[in-house]
Design a binder for these strands. Sequence first.
DNA 1: TTTTTTAGTGTTAAATAAACACTTATTTTT
DNA 2: AAAAATAAGTGTTTATTTAACACTAAAAAA
Lengths: 235, 235
Amino acid sequence: MTRYSGQTRLLVAVDCIIFGFDGQDLKILLIQRGFEPEKNKWSLMGGFVQPDESPDEAATRVLKELTGLEGVYMEQIQAFGHPGRDPQERTISIAYFALIDIHKYEKQISDQYHAEWFTLNNIPPLIFDHTDMIKMARKKLRYKAAIHPILFELLPGKFTVPQLQNLYQGIYDTVLDKRNFSRKLMSTGLLVKQQEKDKAGSKKGAFYFKLDKKQYKKKFQAFLNFIPNPDNLLN
Amino acid sequence: MTRYSGQTRLLVAVDCIIFGFDGQDLKILLIQRGFEPEKNKWSLMGGFVQPDESPDEAATRVLKELTGLEGVYMEQIQAFGHPGRDPQERTISIAYFALIDIHKYEKQISDQYHAEWFTLNNIPPLIFDHTDMIKMARKKLRYKAAIHPILFELLPGKFTVPQLQNLYQGIYDTVLDKRNFSRKLMSTGLLVKQQEKDKAGSKKGAFYFKLDKKQYKKKFQAFLNFIPNPDNLLN
DNA sequence: TTTTTTAGTGTTAAATAAACACTTATTTTT
DNA sequence: AAAAATAAGTGTTTATTTAACACTAAAAAA
């Protein structure tokens, strides 16, 4: 079969915005680029889409390369394709965000990528349009998390309500009333209270909860409205 | 400057899902493909991203080519990139949806593309993964329109409340209470009542309204909740 | 003039959201 | 051993929003 004639072929890459939450702050995993151009500058983890893989598969592969993790929640954000965004060669990059349990993150033995976590208000200057990508990722995350119970993907198997509240507060850069937050949360029926307490976070200790996986799957598409007046807070 | 070595370059295309509303039904503009492969089959309007243009620009260009329209509301949906989605040659396609005022649609003189409007439950078999693209476009449109006053982009300068209600009902495949709908709509402050009536749609005639452009810009980001219980209706 | 058709409008009840402060458990300090 | 410090946990009231509901008005057609 003949190919389309007279058309230019372009490099196609994926870049991953990897979010993690340490119980206190929302963070992004960045790497120090090991090759030219812009060697040693900070950037998102990325890679080129290979002939035999879809962009989704490329993003999954790239995430695994850096973190060792599989089966992670990922979502395509959008394609970034300004000519000149990569000065070396025209490249279309498809951005993805991933939500990982930061505790499961395995520092790859080789430490080949020199990766580090950065809190959102501490992002260093990045190569190309990666800063824009992060901005879009945050926007999309806010948008989605205001409506769907997506942020549980960032938490470990067991977590406390105050931790979860911290997470929401961090993402929306706001302060929530803990009584209303807790009530709304419990009313979703997504959480199962554990006997055990987390004693690290406070003197009194806070009860652990686990996600009810079944309910989670069932209610994932429901409009949950965790965030009061989201229109003030989005963007 | 050297190029990235050892990587495969791919074709990158854009495809446009062009929505229009005739006052009764939501429709999509499709073309009969004029070249191989799949010549004469129905498809979305698309084109390859050129070396000097961004995907957004390519989509804008492609839309203009087909409809003659500029300054149209467009939004990127996502990139589709399964290897094999185009059997002729590996192509990554970035899908966009556009909302146009169907009355402004100018049949291009050449009629080079053999375009036709199809109602959503009447879409013919399409080439490649274009059916999936339309599915995603509808999903994204439903999602966005449940929250933002985006559907005005589909309407002409003046329109009636019953027309608008038809539009919402069509998109969400549901029936709305006209008292509640009308009240909610008016409370947005987005509409300006005209003296004139549309006499075409009914015996009594319905008053025309126009969009208050200033308010529209201001409130575009607000969470409006036009649709009761959106969680039942999305997807 | 009667019938038909669709536009237009108000009220009430139920559900949800928002605002608000004290008690409890535990550790640390004195 | 008692007191102080810290963060967790919990209930009520009011305001706002949403949902359900049915009749009148205008114009054309019969």
